[in-house]
Design a binder for these strands. Structure first.
Lengths: 125, 125
DNA sequence: TTGGCTGTATTATACGACTAGTACAGTTGC
DNA sequence: GCAACTGTACTAGTCGTATAATACAGCCAA
């Protein structure tokens, strides 16, 4: 059963997107595996203190991307393979890096400064 | 007059926040200086193809942070000094770095991999 | 078999972001 | 002075996110 212990809703990002990203990043990290059972919509929503419909929206999108399998009455399970994971990793990384480089460049930060900042703040907090 | 030529609304971030960040990052980069005139609400909204109220919301928040000065009838101007800029730089950098490190860590990326990714993708696009 | 769980669907409500339109007071340049 | 600009304020409406409550059909273990 996939654990959401490390999941903490934050920023202003829609909750359903945060759930989506949490699952995808777990799949990339290898902490979430093919066949793993997801918590039920009701259980997870109670756990996170949010509405079941919000969880359902996230799970529905995961199913639309063929990353989970659902059938009425039974728990949903992860549906992963190497190809999907490689693609997920590329997509997520590309967007993260694109976002940070654009942001830092707008502030006039150089590549060398950016690297130094990452090295310095990586292990904080 | 501050130019918004490089401003391109994107992601799902609220437009008024994107305008806010554009100004703040420009101040940090030194491309926007103390005393600089801002385009009028109406002109900027027409330029960006958005509603004047959205621009007003961003400008209002900048004034609440004492980063611009506005008076009825006259154009708004930037209100900066070294102390404010240092603080802006720290706040913006901290949030950017926090965001990217958290995201990459959730994907199981190490510090060394993160640095390599930044170095590799910095000059792309 | 049966009761409690599962996924799925529907309706209604609330709020923030954004748009549209209008109005009014004050500045600026000719 | 006056016309054209400026900032500010307000109402009304749409859309996406999130909540709340309810309902139904299918799985599964005791």
């Amino acid at each position: 059963m996939i654990s959401f212990d490390t999941f903490k809703p934050g920023d202003g990002t829609p909750i359903y997107l945060q759930i989506l990203l949490f699952i995808k990043r777990g799949a990339v990290a290898g902490t979430i595996l093919d066949g793993d059972e997801l918590p039920s919509r009701r259980v997870l929503s109670a756990l996170l203190g949010i509405n079941p419909n919000t969880v359902q929206k996230a799970f529905r999108m995961l199913e639309d991307e063929d990353l989970i399998e659902s059938q009425t009455g039974a728990k949903s399970t992860m549906k992963l393979n190497d190809e999907k994971i490689v693609k997920l990793r590329e997509d997520l990384l590309r967007e993260d890096i694109r976002s940070i480089t654009e942001s830092l460049r707008q502030m006039g930060i150089t590549r060398e400064e950016a690297v130094r900042l990452i090295e310095r703040f990586w292990d904080e907090e």
